[in-house]
Design a protein around this nucleic acid. Sequence first.
DNA 1: CCGTATCCGCGAGGATACTG
DNA 2: CAGTATCCTCGCGGATACGG
Lengths: 138, 138
Amino acid sequence: MSASGSAAPAPLAVDAFSSGCPPRALLNTVGDKWVILVVNLLGDGGARFSEIQRAVGGVSRKMLVQTLRTLERDGLAVRTVYADAPPRVTYSLTPLGQTLLRPLQAVRTWCEDHVTEVSSAQAVYDARPEYTGSAATG
Amino acid sequence: MSASGSAAPAPLAVDAFSSGCPPRALLNTVGDKWVILVVNLLGDGGARFSEIQRAVGGVSRKMLVQTLRTLERDGLAVRTVYADAPPRVTYSLTPLGQTLLRPLQAVRTWCEDHVTEVSSAQAVYDARPEYTGSAATG
DNA sequence: CCGTATCCGCGAGGATACTG
DNA sequence: CAGTATCCTCGCGGATACGG
């Protein structure tokens, strides 16, 4: 409730998140796991909600709705509702969303292309002795 | 776990391209907000821990350590410790990390390039009436 | 200066039930 | 089929203190 008047020190939360040049919020949205997958999927053309859910696999309805809402709100995807029974809703990329498709495809491709190398590196790292006995000379 | 061929029910492994094929964990790592920022930063050359922390801005020591550990473990960055006082540690991209630089730069560039359009779209969406009164006549 | 360990709040996100 | 609302858990991530 409104504890008015108390000299709450207001711990100077000076919006430290926007300190850097690049848009953090957008970066966070664009880098989101489901966003990358869904945008890549929609790159092949429009798809129904259930189709997307099935294609992505492992995504809950809640998360998919949230992801698609974000994409729609950001002007990256359009939502089309058909007044038909049973209800049919399709999603597709906007021109703006298609400009994002290329970068995200590159990221997805990189992951598929280098997952083996990364796994190997992880195995090597995991096999390391945990005692920090080696210091770089020099 | 190597029960091959057994009549395990295995409710049809969702054959979609996203469920099992693409590396979700790697996608999640690569898409991480701090990872994108740090990799982009290291693309300009090696940097000290404190330099990275200052350059990124708003990242806690804990998160930065965690991010750099992940990059090191995945073979994307190398950590160099100088046995000097005061301690000096530098991080730089590996050749593998440099191959990731291009895609992540593209993502970062896209964000900077389209943040205005996205903000506009958000404003438009935010101004919408919340009652869904428009159904597509399809 | 670099890194670890501990505590803890908060919100992401799954499961479920219900509406249109 | 598509979407919402509710509950509840779990771990992300900040704050702090300490070690090397």
